[in-house]
Design a binder for these strands. Structure first.
Length: 640
DNA sequence: CGCTCATAAT
């Protein structure tokens, strides 16, 4: 571009084409500010812009998210009377969409007298970018009814809309339609179809398409990895989620063995997979690869890395990665603030929040979930309430259930049960399962069973759908000896055909993942593991550990009201395996499918003290980080 | 010229 500018400056005469060429060059080289500068010079020189010139400047506005300047350009377009030009309309529609003004984008589209296929594609992707997938599908139907012929861009765009709302049926119709139009072997469309199947949970079909593709692009690999990575977060079953993560890692390894090189999309997805699997070893290896390939400087990859270290319980490494980021976005800050909050480092979380505001980054509601949970963890009532006010008044953010959950959790931790219940009454919407569960767990911890029973009844009125909620209720009624309620809850669980809660844990060491079931004896080292546990329990008892008979939550059968016959829940076996197989001093990371029970939580605190090891367990609710006999969860939350 | 598929935080 320097050369181009040099030549431009030496030109004795310039016309609008010269100016436009320079501007287009700046836009293409991601220097939109300079393009805008050139545009100002052009206007000052008295030259009339053409629709090409204005198209280039609208692009610059898009990449700067500058809707003000965009509207100004829109003014010129009207002034020069080229508003009815199709390209201008397309560019305006695209600009408004990228700047988040969906209504303006649609208006710009509607004003195009002669819509071409690009106009339709632009408005479809505008719908996708602005969370209006259903509207997008209606636009597509309208397009077909007007006999406009979609091209490959249009079809991939429609398929991505189907992805967002999991409209598999619609997507399949689009697929057969695209075959009719002769796009059967089109790579982009095949990638989109494959991704749609993955996102809709049809893994086998997706896999079949993937295996049948004779040419594969990096987008294909990335779509596959991203598809599995997303399943880690939304699969119904934890075991499926876990397998999806492992599968994503396998595909990543295959990609590495192929001749293609991973890019920023690959790295951000695969780092997220490591977060989900609490796979620190793999995560660190990938960290090294992002450095070598130069993609670490990308802000999305950097944020994914920070998040990975946070989720793996390595707060120091997360901090280092965060500090070393060349640029940070709202998401980077939020991720780090939440990381500190989850690790019980409330003051650091709040300090970082202030740094973020000083840096001029505007927090959103997720940031405030992190801030409020930091306050809650440290019992900082005044601060929490003042941040809550700040959120509503200064940032005009409407509180959502998660914010109330943090505040209620805070009162509950402090034993201020009445305040907690008062707060629930003050909320302007109905409390959900999560709120009642927090209250129940809190009331139990503070021995106020009357309030606990009250909350339990409210919870049951909501007809919860997940097994863990019922397990919490069952555990409470059982230990209180309320047999009538016990059989009622059991009946509800049967009626709703809630599957058994499957307790399993996994530990990942180097490149392998090992899983454990309760009382698992199938491992080659089982004997050593049980011996070690027995030994640790004995030593813990001498330090004051009292084994609490835990209830067998995974067992639905009415064998009277049995207390646990299980000796070892899965995470104990995972910890024992880690102790036996990981090098001295290395932290042990376990991932557990359901909430930890009180007994295991208590024992593992002792184990961390006895062995001097850091033990990190991520259960279905939160991250527990055990060090020297303490856990970062503050012994609170819904332990079964 | 303008349009597509794949990425990060609760």
């Amino acid at each position: 571009m320097e050369y181009a500018r040099g030549i431009f400056d030496k030109l004795p005469k310039r016309n609008v084409v010269t100016w436009t060429a320079l501007m287009t060059g700046y836009v293409q080289n991601s220097q939109p500010e300079l393009a805008i500068q050139v545009f100002q010079e052009l206007l000052e020189s008295g030259t009339y812009p053409t629709n090409y010139t204005l198209g280039a400047i609208l692009n610059a506005c898009s990449s700067l998210f500058s809707i003000e300047l965009g509207k100004q350009i829109h003014g010129y377009i009207i002034k020069y009377q080229i508003e009815s030009d199709t390209s201008m309309g397309n560019a305006l529609c695209s600009l408004y969409s990228k700047c988040g003004s969906f209504e303006f984008a649609v208006k710009a589209f509607r004003r195009i007298p002669e819509k071409n296929v690009i106009s339709w594609t632009t408005v479809l992707s505008a719908c996708g970018d602005n969370g209006q997938a259903e509207t997008g599908l209606r636009f597509f139907a309208e397009m077909l009814s007007e006999d406009a012929k979609p091209n490959e861009f249009t079809l991939t765009s429609v398929l991505s809309l189907c992805c967002i709302i999991h409209a598999l049926g619609f997507g399949e119709q689009v697929h057969s339609f695209s075959i009719k139009l002769g796009f059967e072997s089109n790579l982009s469309i095949r990638n989109s179809i494959m991704y749609l199947y993955l996102r809709s949970g049809r893994v086998d079909e997706a896999r079949r398409l993937f295996d049948a593709m004779e040419t594969i692009t990096l987008v294909t690999w990335n779509a596959m990895i991203a598809g599995y990575s997303q399943m880690v977060g939304c699969a119904k079953d934890d075991l499926i989620a876990h397998h999806s993560g492992i599968e994503a890692l396998n595909i990543f390894l295959k990609l590495k063995r192929s001749s293609m090189k991973p890019d920023l999309f690959t790295f951000s997805s695969i780092l997220t997979v490591c977060s989900g699997l609490v796979a620190l070893d793999q995560g660190e290896q990938i960290h090294a690869q992002t450095i070598k390939s130069g993609f670490l400087s990308d802000v999305v990859v950097g944020s994914a890395l920070v998040n990975m270290y946070n989720k793996c319980g390595s707060i120091e490494k997360a901090t280092k990665a965060f500090v070393e980021m060349p640029t940070r976005t709202l998401i980077s800050w939020t991720s780090m603030i939440t990381g500190y909050a989850q690790h019980g480092r409330s003051l650091q979380a709040l300090q970082l929040f202030e740094d973020m505001r000083l840096a001029g980054v505007r927090p959103n509601k997720i940031t405030f979930v992190g801030v409020l949970s930091a306050c809650s963890h440290a019992g900082m009532v005044d601060e929490a309430l003042s941040y809550f006010e700040m959120m509503k008044k200064k940032y005009k953010i409407k509180p959502v259930m998660d914010h109330f959950a943090c505040l209620i959790d805070m009162f509950v931790r402090l034993g201020k049960l009445q305040e907690a219940f008062d707060f629930v009454k003050k909320m302007d919407f109905e409390p959900n399962e999560c709120i009642w569960s927090i209250l129940i767990a809190g009331c139990r911890s503070h021995g106020n069973m009357e309030l606990a029973f009250y909350a339990a009844e409210r919870l049951l009125e909501l007809k919860p759908k997940d097994g863990e909620t019922y397990a919490l209720l069952l555990s409470m009624y059982l230990s209180a000896g309320k047999w009538k309620d016990v059989s009622n809850v059991r009946k509800l669980m049967r009626d709703d055909r809630l599957g058994k809660l499957r307790d399993w844990s996994s530990v990942s060491i180097k490149n392998k993942v090992y899983s454990f079931k309760p009382d698992d004896k199938s491992h080659s080292q089982s004997a050593d593991m049980y011996k070690l546990l027995e030994d640790l329990v004995e030593k813990a008892q001498s330090l004051g550990y009292v084994s609490q008979k835990s209830l067998e939550m995974t067992d639905e059968e009415d064998k009277g009201e049995t207390f646990s016959s299980t000796v070892h829940h899965s995470e104990k076996l995972g910890v024992a395996f880690g102790l036996l197989n990981m090098c001295r001093g290395a932290s042990i990371r376990v991932i557990k499918s359901i909430s930890m029970c009180r007994d295991c939580h208590s024992l593992i605190k002792y184990i961390s003290l006895l062995t001097g090891r850091e033990i990190i367990i991520r259960d279905s609710k939160r991250l527990h980080q055990f060090n020297d006999g303490h856990c970062t969860c503050g012994d609170f939350g819904s332990l079964l």
